[in-house]
Amino acid sequence: MTPPHIASTHRGAVLPDWIDSNGHMNLAYYLVAFDHAIDVFTDSIGMDRAYRDAHGSTIFVVETHLTYARELVEGDGFRIETRVLGVEGRKLRLFNVMYCGDEADTVATNELMILHVDMRTRRSAPFPAPILARLIEWEARQAALPPPPEAGRAIGLQNRTKTL
Rank of each mutant, 00 (worst) to 15 (best):
residue 78 F to M: 09
residue 44 S to P: 06
residue 78 F to W: 00
residue 42 T to M: 15
residue 63 E to D: 15
residue 51 Y to E: 07
residue 50 A to Q: 13
residue 26 N to G: 12
residue 50 A to C: 05
residue 50 A to W: 00
residue 69 A to H: 14
residue 62 V to R: 08
residue 66 L to G: 07
residue 42 T to S: 08
residue 69 A to N: 11
residue 77 G to E: 07
residue 34 F to K: 04
residue 53 D to H: 13
residue 61 V to F: 04
residue 53 D to V: 13
residue 40 V to H: 05
residue 59 I to T: 10
residue 27 L to Y: 15
residue 47 M to K: 10
residue 51 Y to N: 11
residue 58 T to C: 10
residue 46 G to E: 02
residue 29 Y to R: 13
residue 43 D to A: 06
residue 24 H to Y: 03
residue 40 V to T: 13
residue 39 D to N: 13
residue 56 G to K: 05
residue 51 Y to S: 09
residue 43 D to I: 04
residue 53 D to S: 14
residue 44 S to L: 08
residue 33 A to P: 03
residue 55 H to V: 14
residue 34 F to E: 04
residue 68 Y to D: 09
residue 58 T to S: 15
residue 16 P to Y: 00
residue 69 A to Y: 12
residue 52 R to K: 12
residue 71 E to P: 03
residue 25 M to G: 04
residue 23 G to D: 02
residue 56 G to D: 10
residue 34 F to R: 01
residue 20 D to G: 01
residue 15 L to W: 14
residue 22 N to E: 14
residue 36 H to C: 13
residue 63 E to I: 08
residue 19 I to N: 01
residue 39 D to E: 01
residue 69 A to R: 15
residue 71 E to Q: 13
residue 57 S to E: 07
residue 75 G to W: 00
residue 25 M to Y: 03
residue 37 A to D: 02
residue 38 I to D: 08
residue 54 A to K: 03
residue 29 Y to E: 05
residue 53 D to F: 05
residue 16 P to H: 00
residue 23 G to P: 03
residue 65 H to Q: 15
residue 35 D to N: 14
residue 22 N to C: 09
residue 26 N to D: 03
residue 42 T to D: 03
residue 30 Y to F: 12
residue 55 H to Q: 06
residue 55 H to T: 14
residue 61 V to M: 02
residue 57 S to Y: 03
residue 68 Y to N: 09
residue 17 D to W: 14
residue 78 F to G: 04
residue 40 V to D: 11
residue 61 V to P: 04
residue 18 W to F: 13
residue 71 E to L: 02
residue 24 H to P: 07
residue 59 I to C: 15
residue 73 V to L: 12
residue 53 D to W: 11
residue 71 E to A: 02
residue 49 R to F: 11
residue 41 F to M: 03
residue 32 V to T: 05
residue 36 H to L: 11
residue 53 D to N: 15
residue 79 R to G: 06
residue 28 A to E: 10
residue 68 Y to E: 05
residue 15 L to C: 05
residue 59 I to D: 01
residue 17 D to A: 08
residue 45 I to T: 02
residue 32 V to E: 06
residue 35 D to A: 10
residue 44 S to Y: 00
residue 54 A to Y: 04
residue 76 D to N: 10
residue 29 Y to A: 07
residue 49 R to P: 11
residue 49 R to K: 11
residue 43 D to Y: 00
residue 36 H to E: 10
residue 41 F to Q: 01
residue 50 A to F: 00
residue 52 R to P: 02
residue 43 D to F: 00
residue 65 H to N: 13
residue 70 R to I: 08
residue 56 G to H: 04
residue 78 F to E: 02
residue 67 T to M: 02
residue 42 T to N: 11
residue 23 G to N: 01
residue 46 G to N: 06
residue 24 H to V: 08
residue 48 D to H: 12
residue 63 E to T: 14
residue 36 H to M: 15
residue 18 W to T: 07
